[in-house]
Design a protein around this nucleic acid. Structure first.
Length: 567
DNA sequence: AAATTTCGCGCG
DNA sequence: AAAGCGCGCGAAATTT
């Protein structure tokens, strides 16, 4: 069931019951759609050549409003969990241009996974009314406005995610194969190691006098063999191995590097995830508690730099790659209204600005210091320069410290637009009270328990410390994405061949998003406009979050033929 | 045999 | 021993 709504999100006209077949006609004239789950409707609509201008995603918005501290006093937030809370995300797709995902558990219209409610059973109208009431009842500075912006951004993100899945990331399988063959040797037969890796395996065995049966992929066996050969290591981590002085280290690190490429982004990956020159992943909007996106399929948010050369624009097209420079510290400056940090960020390089302010001696110190402040680092250079940063930027540092203390007390924290962190959970509380009981007891066990509890306390403080920054940065990114999407559409079609029936075929469109970075696939004739669009959108995002507070969000923008050229 | 855990590494 | 935040994924080991 769908419902027409006006520009304020208020229902207009009668409810419409529709099947997917008639969806394109049904929403064709609507300026805004409210639906249970973007993933359930939008892929088919896109496949039918449709597009939605604006949407309200009830599932995603509900998740935010049920937990937000800003709506905590409303009946909506305090009601016990209901059917809408059990609503699982629909799978993205099916996309007619792509065969079913190899591991797809179910298809649209098929069985509903255990424990999840089929959305068709639920009436969106009362749910929408409830959510609008919760929004209206939000409390705090600018409360309704901020939360409305957040749910609008989250919903727009869902549109972007579905559209990116539909369009796919241009991917040249032949270039990818070239990269693999260059490093690993030609594609081996199934079950065999690539030539270069087999060679390295032999070198590794020779260096530690191991039998030819030693499989370097077996951690326990390899670790034992290393210890037997007198290589003093207790792990196989790259960082640990690098510190060792032994002839086996170099071939072993090289082997691991190749093994990683082969298993994560090798020929199997190519066969599985690239079809007809496109890589399609499923973006999971709000997949991270902080509001960041995650992805499912192909490890899309971990594409190694090594293979990005295979991301190539179509003939007559370019990739416009834009990333926000030092997004998180800038967001922190805005969150804390720290004018001195905002000043330091006036240029393209905030860390250089911090050095210029005299707070620290080097860019590296500025960087590890800020990262430590936002992550809760307590060791090394990061801890060393923190006091200097705290003196130079007291407001910013105080904000993350407050967030950490709140987490240590078991309280939740909230982003700029109103996304609140989850509580620490039962095990955490149990450890706290358990440790309290153990304090009185003598002996190593009591001390142990309370040490563990303290470590957990601090760990949750680091989580909430980071939550406010990472979560607000994710909100900035949502606003950025939504603005880019709207502005790209307004650019219209480029001077390029393409099917007229396909809305994106001749328009610049988003094809990739990675936390603080976007890739737009654009007809050559539009690249200057696209570069202007992403910059204007970044400015708009900053204004939406921080109003008149003068914090800048500069971008680095590259117009390239392949993704690897961007950095 | 299937499900779950461990380790490690890629990305921001 | 733990260790600065957030993730997804694959192979081998381990458990059921």
């Amino acid at each position: 069931m769908l419902r027409r709504a006006d520009a304020h999100g208020l229902p207009r006209g009668d409810a419409t019951t529709t099947g997917r077949g008639t969806l394109a006609e049904t929403v064709g004239a609507a300026d805004r759609v409210v639906w249970d789950d973007t993933n359930r409707w939008y892929p088919a609509l896109l496949a039918a050549g449709g597009r939605v201008e604006r949407a309200y995603d009830l599932r995603l918005s509900r998740a935010i409003l049920r937990r937000s501290a800003l709506t905590a006093g409303t009946p909506f937030a305090t009601r016990p969990p209901g059917e809408w809370d059990a609503l699982g995300a629909a799978p993205a797709g099916p996309d007619p241009t792509l065969p079913a995902r190899p591991d797809a558990l179910f298809e649209l219209g098929g069985a509903t996974p255990r424990g999840q409610v089929a959305p068709s059973d639920l009436d969106p109208l009362p749910e929408l009314a409830d959510q609008l009431a919760a929004l209206a009842g939000a409390t705090g500075p600018d409360a309704p406005g901020r939360l409305r912006l957040l749910v609008a951004g989250e919903s727009a993100g869902a549109l972007v995610a579905a559209e990116m899945h539909h369009a796919g990331l241009p991917w040249r399988a032949d270039v990818h194969d070239e990269i693999l063959a260059g490093v690993l040797g030609p594609r081996p037969r199934p079950g065999e190691r690539p030539a270069r890796m087999e060679e390295l395996a032999r070198t590794i065995r020779a260096a530690i006098d191991a039998p030819p049966t030693l499989n370097p992929d077996s951690h326990p066996d390899l670790l034992k063999a290393l210890q037997y050969a007198g290589v003093g290591t207790r792990s196989l981590r790259k960082g640990d191995l690098e510190r060792l002085d032994h002839p086996v280290v170099e071939p072993l690190l090289e082997y691991k590097r190749l093994q990683r490429l082969l298993t994560a982004n090798g020929w199997t990956w190519l066969d599985t995830w690239v079809r007809d020159g496109r890589f399609r992943t499923e973006y999971v909007v709000g997949g991270v508690v902080t509001g960041r996106w995650s992805s499912s399929g192909g490890g899309a948010l971990q594409l190694p730099r090594q293979v990005r050369r295979a991301v190539v624009a179509d003939p007559g097209w370019k990739l416009v790659v834009a990333d926000a420079a030092q997004l998180e510290p800038r967001v922190l400056a805005g969150l804390a209204s720290d004018e001195r940090m905002a000043d330091a960020g006036r240029g393209v390089d905030l860390y250089a600005g911090i050095v210029a302010s005299g707070a620290v001696a080097s860019r590296e110190h500025a960087k590890v210091g800020m990262l430590g402040a936002m992550y809760g680092g307590t060791t090394g250079d990061s801890a060393l320069v923190l006091p200097r940063l705290a003196r130079a930027f007291p407001d910013a540092i105080a904000l993350v410290e407050r967030a950490a203390r709140a987490g240590e007390r078991g309280e939740s924290v909230t982003t700029r637009l109103g996304r609140s962190s989850p509580g620490p959970g039962e095990a955490w509380h149990a450890a706290q009270t358990g440790a309290y009981a153990a304090e009185g007891a003598d002996g190593a066990e009591g001390a142990d328990a309370s040490a563990r509890a303290r470590a957990q306390t601090r760990a949750w403080g680091r989580f909430t410390r980071n939550f406010v920054v990472q979560g607000t940065a994710a909100e900035w990114a949502l606003c950025w994405l939504a603005s880019i999407r709207r502005r790209l559409w307004e650019l219209g079609t480029g001077d390029v061949a393409g099917a007229a029936a396909e809305p994106l075929a001749r328009r610049a469109h988003l094809v990739f998003f990675l936390h603080d970075e976007v890739v737009v696939h654009a007809p050559e004739s539009l690249v200057d406009d696209v570069a202007a669009v992403v910059a204007a959108a970044a400015e708009e995002a900053g204004r939406l979050l921080f109003g008149d507070f003068p914090v800048d969000f500069p971008l680095s923008v590259a117009v390239v033929d392949d993704y690897a050229q961007a950095k």
